[in-house]
């Protein structure tokens, strides 16, 4: 990596990188990355591109409630994917809801990563009793399915809050619950990478010249654990988005005032029996596409970044 070839342009060198090469030769990865990119951009640009603001009462009219999609009988061209029971434009609510889902997913994975990598690197570098205790906790947590752990932590977190704050802080409780569910995966991978790196000569050399432990961990070992951690983070993002959607669907997650995709599916589910299928169908499709493309991206990354994990 350190050897630079001056005869080639920066762009050429970028293209020669093994990861970039693998990316452009895997059609699945390109498609997945494109969809993920579009979804994330659309979600973050929701206030700019959404036809309506579903949270602005001035833009909602109850008269336009329960309209089917534009192409079916009774649909209006003003609302491409129809409207929900309150007259909110489905396309706009999905864009705004997707934003919450993605934000919560990223924040939760980031929290899990921070916690897991810190504990994993400490565990791998110091070994001994610290290692045993941390990895035992991780093992025990991994034996219980993640979604159950998330429901439990989320339930405890909600219950610990006073009633009037519960809705306001719901989103943070969900992030913490999923983050605390995620960490063992990161800890395991970071610990494994640390064990390998700590044996290498450059770390021995750094120890010999008397660098403080903190510097060795932060400057030398941590950067080298990032590749496998990135793989886990991508796959973890898909799982975190599913976990958030599940919590919200169970009524334990994001409240309907600022709905995520899971909340939208939950709300729409109540209208399924009256034949208003579109209120739950389109958010569900959006969720499936989002999760599927992030998953595909994760699969490719696992193959490209870390052949050993295969």
């Amino acid at each position: 990596m350190a050897k630079t070839d001056q005869s080639k342009s920066r762009w050429q060198r970028f293209l020669d990188n093994d990861i970039v090469y693998s990316f452009f030769t895997t059609p699945g990865a390109i498609i997945a990355a494109t969809i993920t990119f579009i979804a994330i951009t659309a979600a973050f640009a929701a206030p700019l591109i959404a036809p309506y603001n579903p949270f602005d009462p001035a833009q909602i009219s109850l008269w336009d409630g329960k309209l089917p999609p534009a192409w079916s009988d009774g649909g209006s061209s003003a609302y491409l994917l129809g409207t929900d029971n309150q007259g909110r434009d489905m396309l706009s609510t999905i864009l705004y809801g997707g934003r919450i889902s993605i934000l919560v997913g990223i924040a939760a994975v980031f929290l899990g990563m921070l916690l897991g990598v810190t504990l994993g690197v400490i565990s791998g570098y110091f070994g001994g009793l610290t290692d045993t205790v941390i990895m035992r906790i991780a093992d025990v947590q991994l034996t219980i399915p993640g979604i159950l752990v998330a429901i439990l932590i989320n339930g405890i977190g909600r219950a610990a809050l006073p009633l009037e704050l519960r809705e306001e802080f719901a989103i943070y409780v969900v992030i913490v619950a999923i983050g605390l569910t995620d960490w063992p995966q990161f800890a395991r991978v970071a610990r494994g990478a640390t064990l390998v790196e700590a044996e290498k000569e450059y770390v021995q050399a750094a120890k010999l010249i008397g660098l403080p432990k903190f510097t060795i961990i932060l400057r030398h070992i941590l950067p080298n654990t990032l590749r496998p951690v990135l793989v886990i983070a991508t796959i973890g993002l898909a799982l975190a988005i599913i976990a958030e959607a599940t919590l919200s669907f169970l009524g334990q997650g994001i409240p309907p005032t600022t709905p995520s995709l899971g909340t939208l599916i939950r709300v729409g589910n109540e209208f399924l029996f009256s034949g208003l299928w579109w209120i739950t169908f389109f958010p569900a499709i959006a969720l499936i596409i989002l999760v599927f493309s992030v998953n595909l991206l994760g699969d490719w990354m696992r193959d490209a970044l870390n052949p050993k994990l295969r």
Partner: peptide, 8 residues
Amino acid sequence: LPTFIIGI
């Protein structure tokens, strides 16, 4: 696919 979507 998330379980609850299969159910719905």
